[in-house]
Design a protein around this nucleic acid. Structure first.
Length: 588
RNA sequence: GCACCCGUAGCUCAGCUGGAUAGAGCGUCGGACUUCGAAUCCGCAGGUCGCAGGUUCGAAUCCUGCCGGGUGUGCCA
């Protein structure tokens, strides 16, 4: 009987609690059970806080309600004991036999390692990374790229249909400057060998010249206009710029192990913009002011109250007739709704743009778009000085340089450790390991942090094998693999009956049982750090168990059960790190 | 001006949307390798949750006001 599978543990306990609550108290309607994991093992594994919340409403003492609830929970197969404590908590302790059986189900779940699918799969577009053409990717793109990638993986894991979209900045005013600039200073050979560097160099020259030379600026505008009306020569140039940049981008994404389903840059929406603007005017949402077409929130009856206080308008067309990213973003929403039939659209973009998205989403709503629109924001990456990370001469740090350094530092640590004899990476695997550890460390450092807060970039902490860091988890995984190699068993296919006899086994089992809940919450809230936290706690729990009890040295059913716990740990580490986009290493 | 974010141990950070005595790591100090990987594990110390009020059975969490830091905001994305 599969009474435990295909359901999240917490959802199941919550349901059990809610039903018991209704029956015990003769409620006519459901009240939330308020299930929470306990903070202290002395209080059991989970607690129900419903009694205290209901006491006032039912005019009965909370402990009395809690007592009735606890009484009702006797005999539940998952629950060994339900006890009233404190002002009216009901402390639940999981039944070890039930828990062992449930983990056995997870062990047999080769497709998902115990992460159940959502009841209602949705189509979700995740918009992330979004670099600009003709510019180097820098650290500013790092968080969006790896956070977005993790969000895609998480949502996909729980069963949603996910479309990862790279909304490239491949259209706009910079191209007029680039076209005249390349004509003036362009180096054909360099455009072939170092395309992005060359484009960036020329762009800077052109922008500086345009500031003081009005004729030059005018010709740039003219070339831009030609491009936008489909001039063949300029279009060919533009395509060359885009293609050249694509190669550089592809190389970075390959290093990071990040992929996209769509590369719909701003240019993809170009032709739709006049129509969008026309609709806005017809609906009375936008009007002209000082030559620009603007949305004034204070003038719109059904605008959100917060926005009504905003005096500055949301501009959708500039005085010179050109469109802005605001216009493009509206068109993008409509395409995601109509062509992709998306239920949700998620934007993984830094927090400074919160206002832009607030305005964009408000406008979409007024255009009757009922797709869920979410801005997944994040803080800045800070340097040692607590300020936004920059190179010593104050420039933005190039992403490729940062990744180079990550791999160099990782390689150096590996060589040291091999010399000391503490790492067992075979010579031929060193380069691959340096890559996995270096890139993994950068990703993990970022993803293990709450995305909304700024975070301090610290190489030493990142590459460390101590504490909550990527290499520590990779090390734990490698150790698990080593055990299965020694036992000559297949970790992925291993099956055995679990028995939770030792205290450290019970602690580990409880951690393992939470994996599905954690992945779901992380996916729902777009918070990969919840998965990171789980994996870290799992690794610690396993290490403590491993230290105390022999696995291969045990016999019979105990040995098999401990191998089962080891297999589950290894599989969760692998899958969990995979959800964060971090590679594991078989031997290190 | 308006809007948003942040302030938790010496340092870096969690804190599951209001639950019990606020938790980790790093660092300091003290323990544990003849046994499956000690880059590991165990333990000690460390707190006025920025400040002051309020809401209630109960507040780091919600509300108000201060203090301190950051961000966005009329023609970049």
């Amino acid at each position: 009987m599969c009474y435990a599978c295909a359901m999240k543990l917490e959802a199941m306990l919550d349901e059990v609690g809610r039903r018991a609550l209704r029956e015990a108290l003769d409620l006519t309607e459901d009240a939330p059970a308020l299930l929470r994991p306990t903070q202290d093992a002395r209080f059991g594994d989970y607690q129900l806080n419903a009694a205290m919340a209901l006491a006032k409403k039912l005019k009965r003492p909370p402990r009395e309600l809690a007592g009735a609830l606890a009484e009702r929970l006797q005999g539940e197969p998952a629950i060994a004991s339900a006890e009233v404590a404190g002002p009216g908590f009901v402390n639940l302790t999981l039944d070890d036999t039930w828990l062992a059986a449930r983990l056995g189900e997870d062990l047999r779940d080769h497709d998902a390692d115990g992460v159940p699918p959502v009841a209602k799969p949705e189509t979700i577009v995740v918009d992330f990374s979004s670099p600009n053409i003709a510019k180097q990717m820098h650290v500013g793109h790092l968080r969006s790229t790896i956070l977005g990638d993790a969000v895609v993986r998480l949502l996909r894991q729980v069963g949603h249909h996910v479309i990862g979209d790279n909304h490239l900045g491949d259209w706009g005013t910079q191209f007029g400057l680039l076209i005249v600039g390349m004509r003036e200073w362009g180096d054909e050979a360099k455009l072939e060998s170092e395309p992005v560097d060359e484009l960036e160099r020329v762009y800077k020259l052109a922008r500086a010249r345009a500031k003081e030379d009005e004729d030059f600026a005018e010709s740039a505008r003219a070339e831009l206009a030609k491009l936008q009306t489909g001039d063949a020569a300029n279009l060919a140039l533009w395509e060359r710029f885009v293609a050249a940049t694509r190669h550089t981008l592809d190389a970075i994404y390959a290093r990071l192990g990040v992929t996209f389903d769509e590369w719909l840059g701003e240019s993809a929406y170009h032709e739709l913009l006049p129509g969008v603007v026309k609709t806005l005017e017809e609906r009375g949402l936008a009007r002209e002011d000082q030559g620009a077409l603007c949305v004034f929130w204070g003038e719109l009856a059904d605008a959100p109250p917060k926005l009504k206080k905003q005096k500055e308008p949301f501009i959708v067309r500039k005085r010179d007739g050109a469109f802005l990213y605001s216009t493009t973003d509206i068109a993008t929403i409509l395409v995601r709704r109509d062509r992709f039939e998306a239920d949700r659209s998620i934007y993984v973009v830094g927090s400074p743009q919160a206002l832009h998205f607030q305005q964009l989403f408000a406008l979409a709503k007024m255009l009757d778009v009922d797709m869920r629109l979410e801005h997944v924001g994040f803080g800045a990456i800070l340097g040692d000085d607590g300020k936004v990370l920059r190179t010593r001469d104050g420039k933005a740090v190039r992403l490729s340089d940062l990744l180079d350094e990550a791999e160099e530092r990782s390689l150096k640590r590996i060589e040291e450790a091999r010399a000391e004899g503490v790492l067992r990476i075979p010579e031929e695997d060193v380069a691959a390991a340096a890559h996995a550890i270096g890139i993994g460390a950068v990703k993990y450092a970022d993803l293990s942090q709450n995305r909304l807060s700024d975070y301090r970039f610290d190489w030493d902490r990142m590459i460390s094998f101590k504490g909550n860091a990527g290499p520590y988890l990779q090390y734990n995984y490698a150790r698990v693999r080593s055990i299965f190699r020694k036992a000559e068993l297949d970790m992925q296919r291993f099956e055995a009956e679990l028995r939770l006899d030792e205290a450290l086994e019970r602690v580990l089992a409880r951690r393992l049982a939470r994996f599905g809940d954690v992945v779901h919450r992380a996916a729902e809230q777009a918070e990969p750090h919840l998965v990171a936290e789980h994996l870290y706690e799992l690794a610690r729990g396993y290490s403590a168990f491993y230290k105390e009890h022999t696995i291969l040295g045990a016999e019979g059913a105990t040995r098999a059960s401990r191998l089962a716990l080891t297999a589950l740990t290894g599989r969760q580490l692998k899958r969990g790190l995979g959800l964060l986009g971090v590679d594991v290493i078989e031997r290190m």
